[in-house]
Nucleic acid binder design. Structure first.
Lengths: 356, 356
DNA sequence: TTTTGGCACTCTGGTTGTAAGAGTGCTAAT
DNA sequence: ATTAGCACTCTTACAACCAGAGTGCCAAAA
C-alpha cells in the first residue's frame, strides 16, 4: 500500500486528512496530532489509523513534526499540494465587492487608486498589502503644456492616461518666449498624443541627434524643450510600489521574533529583490502564490506572497498582492487578491473611458 | 544635610553623580549600581558613599530602582533635570551640516523637502522622524491656470509658494469656453496673487453670496469656477505629517515588546492625538522635549519626543521632531532636530527667494 | 561630620530535577 | 485493514537552589 502511495499519489482518504490537517493548522498554529485529527476529520477512524496515514504523508514530505512528540504541520510541499488540489475558495460576499467598488470608484488619480487598493488589501486580510506602480511603458502621453513662471523657470504640465497629471519645473539654458512655448506644446501634442512615454523619449533622442536641417525651426525648438521635460520624467521614479499594513505583520506570532521583523522590514526598504520577484508575476494573469522559501527570497522565508497582475486595456501593467505568514487563510486571501486586481484594473481603465 | 538637599536643590557632587548615572544608563540600558558609579564618576569615593547620595537622589524622586537589589535608573524628573541643567550638547560636525544641506538644497518641491527632512532625522538618529505639513494658512497663492481637458473636465493648475504646484480636475456643471477660462484665470491671478488659500476661500464664499449685480460678468464667472477649484483644495488634506523610520524603533529592546509596538504603531495611524500634541509645539520656537508620560499621551509612555518648529518668513508654520525611547542620546538628538528645523525652513524659504 | 568597611538581607537569573501531558512508533490482536 | 496497548520521547511547567549584584544600615575611621 505504502508503495502505491508513492507511485500514484495519495488516495482519497489521505488527501482528505491532509486537507483537514492543513486547515486545522492554519486556524490554530499548533502542530496537529493524531487524536485531534481523528476527532476533526469526521471519518470515524481511530488515532492509531490516523497515525499510519500521517507517517505516510510525512514520508512523502507533505507534513513534518517539529519534534518526536508533537503533532504534524504542513511543509511547503504540503501547502503547495493543499493549495493546488484541495483548496476550496470561499466566494466573496457581494457586500465586500460593493465596498471595494465604493472605495475605488470615486478616486480620480492613479496615485490614490493604487494607495487605496493596497489599503483595501491590507485591511481586509490584516496582512501587508502591496501594489506596484504601472509599468512606465503603460503611461501614454495625452498632452503637454508649458507655463512660464519666471525668466528661467518653466512649469511643465504633463497629462497622461487621460487623467493623470504630472508637474515639473525645468530650467532651460536658452530663452523661450511665450509664443514659442505655446507652439512647442501644440507641436508636441499633435505629434505624440497617444504614444507612451518610453517611446517618446526614444523618438526625442533620435531626433536630437539627427541633422537639424531636415526639420523646421519650430520642431527643433519644440524638441529641445521637450527633451528637457521628458528627461526629468524619465529619471528614477521615486518609488516602485505602494506598501501598506506592514505593521499588521506584527500581530502574527510566528513572525513576531523581533529579528525576523527587522529583516523583513529592511527588505521592504531594500526593494530591489522584491521588485524583481514581483516583476516575474507580471507576464501572466491570474493569482500566483509563493509559499515560504518558494519565492527564493530569504527575508520572506516564513511568509507567503499571494499576487495577481492588473491590466489596463487588456495589458498587464502592474502587480499587486499580499504578504503574510505562510499560515494564512488562503481560501479567503486568494479571491480578495483576485478581486482587487480586477477592480484596480477597472478603476484605472474607467477613467480613460468615461469622462465623468 | 538631607534637609538642605530638599530645600535648596542638589549640591555639586550629587548633580555630577546624577549626570554620570544618567549618561551611563543611557548608553547601557542597565540600572547602574553604586560600584559602577564610583568607578565611573572619577571622584574617588567609595561605593558606600555613593550609596548615600543615591539614596538622597531617590528621595528626591530623581532616580529609582526597579527592585531592591538592582542599580538605579533615572525617573522622568531625573531625565528632566538632566536635560534642563546638566546636559552638555555636542556641537555637530560641519560634515553633517553640509550633508543635510546637500540633501535638502537640490529638491524643488515641498513634498520632497519634507520627506527628506524626515528621513534625515530618522536616519541620523536611528529613531522615528516626523515632520508636519506646513499650516494651510502659510500656503500663499501665486497663480492659477485652467486647462480644458474635455467638455466637462477642466484641469486646474494651482501654483503656490512660488514653487509648489497642485493639480485637480473639476467638473463644472455650467459650460466654460476657452476664452472664459483664460480671462477667469487672469482675473484671479490679478486679484488674489500673494494671498493665502484660507483667506482666498473666505473671500470667494463672501463674494458668491453677495448680490451679483455689483460685479461685472467676468468676475462672476471667475468666482464661480474659482470656487470649485479652491473648494477641492480646501477639503481634507490627505495626511497631517510625514513619518519615517518607524521601523527603527524595533531595534530598541525597551520598546520591543510586541504589545508596545502595536500600540505605538496604531497610534501613528490614529494621528489625531499626535497632531494635537505637535500643534502645541507650533507656537514658540526652539527645541522642546517631552519625556515619557510628560506628553500626556499614553502610547508614548516609554518614549521621548524631541521637537522643534520650523519657519517660513519668520512665521512658524510646522513642527518636526523625533520619537524614540526615553533612553536616547539627547546631547546628539537635540542639535540634530534643531539643525533640521533651521535647514528645513531655509530650504522652503529659499525656493521663494531665489529663482534657481 | 563625613567617609568608609563590613555585614546581613533581598531580589534576579540561571541551572537542575521532577512530574505531567501530549504524541509518536511499533506490535500484536481483532 | 484497523485498532488497542504500551513503551518511549520530547516539551513544558514548576519548584528548589545557588551565585551574583546591589542595597541599607551601623559602627569604626578619618
Amino acid at each position: 500500500m505504502n508503495e502505491i502511495y508513492k507511485l500514484s499519489g495519495l488516495n482519497e482518504r489521505a488527501q482528505h486528512l491532509l486537507k483537514v490537517l492543513v486547515e486545522r493548522y492554519i486556524s490554530d498554529g499548533q502542530p496537529v496530532g493524531s487524536r485531534a485529527l481523528s476527532r476533526e476529520a469526521g471519518l470515524s477512524l481511530s488515532p492509531a489509523t490516523i497515525r499510519n496515514v500521517m507517517a505516510d504523508l510525512e514520508d512523502l514530505g507533505l507534513i513534518t513534526a517539529p519534534h518526536t512528540s508533537a503533532g504534524r504541520m504542513p511543509t511547503v510541499s504540503g501547502y503547495r499540494f493543499f493549495i493546488d488540489s484541495l483548496l476550496t475558495v470561499k466566494p466573496l460576499q457581494n457586500e465586500i465587492i460593493h465596498q471595494f467598488q465604493r472605495d475605488l470608484e470615486p478616486l480620480d488619480n492613479a496615485g490614490d487608486i493604487l494607495e487605496t487598493a493596497s489599503r483595501l488589501l491590507s485591511d481586509m486580510t490584516h496582512m501587508a498589502g502591496l501594489v506596484t506602480l504601472p509599468r512606465r511603458e503603460a503611461v501614454t502621453f495625452r498632452m503637454i503644456e508649458f507655463l512660464p513662471l519666471s525668466e528661467q523657470r518653466i512649469l511643465v504640465i504633463l497629462v497622461t492616461n487621460e487623467q493623470e497629471v504630472q508637474n515639473r519645473i525645468i530650467h532651460p539654458t536658452k530663452q523661450f518666449s511665450a509664443s514659442e512655448l505655446t507652439s512647442a506644446a501644440n507641436y508636441l501634442n499633435a505629434v505624440y498624443a497617444g504614444k507612451d512615454l518610453v517611446t517618446i523619449r526614444e523618438c526625442l533622442l533620435h531626433e536630437l541627434q539627427q541633422t537639424r536641417e531636415q526639420m523646421n525651426q519650430e520642431a527643433i525648438r519644440a524638441t529641445e524643450i521637450a527633451d528637457l521635460a521628458f528627461q526629468v520624467s524619465g529619471q528614477k521614479r521615486k518609488k516602485d510600489f505602494v506598501l501598506t499594513g506592514e505593521m499588521n505583520l506584527l500581530d502574527f506570532d510566528e513572525l513576531a521574533s523581533m529579528e525576523r521583523m527587522r529583516i523583513l522590514f529592511s527588505a521592504f526598504r531594500q526593494k530591489e529583490d522584491l521588485v524583481h520577484l514581483l516583476d516575474r508575476c507580471l507576464e501572466s494573469s491570474g493569482v500566483k502564490i509563493f509559499i515560504g522559501e518558494e519565492s527564493g527570497y530569504e527575508p520572506l522565508e516564513q511568509c507567503s506572497l499571494v499576487t495577481a497582475s492588473y491590466a489596463i486595456d487588456d495589458h498587464n501593467v502592474g502587480v499587486l498582492g499580499v504578504i503574510g505568514p505562510t499560515r494564512m487563510k488562503y481560501e479567503r486571501v486568494i479571491p480578495l487578491v483576485d478581486l482587487t486586481a480586477k477592480l484596480l484594473g477597472a478603476a484605472l481603465n474607467h477613467k480613460s473611458l468615461s469622462p465623468s
